[in-house]
């Protein structure tokens, strides 16, 4: 999300009556795909796992708009 201070300190501010100037922007930009790689170590002996990926939008904490939910069943059974 675009993050702003009030331009009087380096404290991030919330609310249009306080924000004044962006200092960091982690939002999704046009023509700029966001790629992430996550390495998930599994406990020893585990051969199956269900990976659930959710993308949501939360304009306020707790106010959740679901966007994507992708489920992948992965198996390590072929490992020697």
């Amino acid at each position: 999300m675009p993050q702003a201070t009030d331009s009087r300190s380096n404290q991030m501010m919330l609310g249009p009556d306080k924000k004044l100037g962006l200092i960091r922007d982690t939002s999704i930009q046009p023509f700029a795909p966001k790629e992430e790689t996550m390495e998930i170590p599994l406990p020893p002996g585990v051969t199956k796992a269900v990976i659930e990926v959710r993308l949501t939008y939360q304009p306020r904490p707790g106010n959740i708009y679901p966007i994507h939910k992708v489920v992948r069943n992965v198996s390590l059974e072929e490992t020697r």
């Binding site: 999704i28 930009q29 046009p30 023509f31 700029a32 795909p33 966001k34 790629e35 992430e36 790689t37 996550m38 390495e39 998930i40 170590p41 599994l42 406990p43 020893p44 002996g45 585990v46 051969t47 796992a49 990976i51 990926v53 993308l55 992965v74 390590l76 490992t79």
Partner: peptide, 15 residues
């Protein structure tokens, strides 16, 4: 030996 899952996500914007 360590069982491992590597997860890659890619979000593209059409906006």
């Amino acid at each position: 030996s360590r069982p491992m899952v590597v997860l890659k996500t890619k979000i593209t914007s059409k906006a």
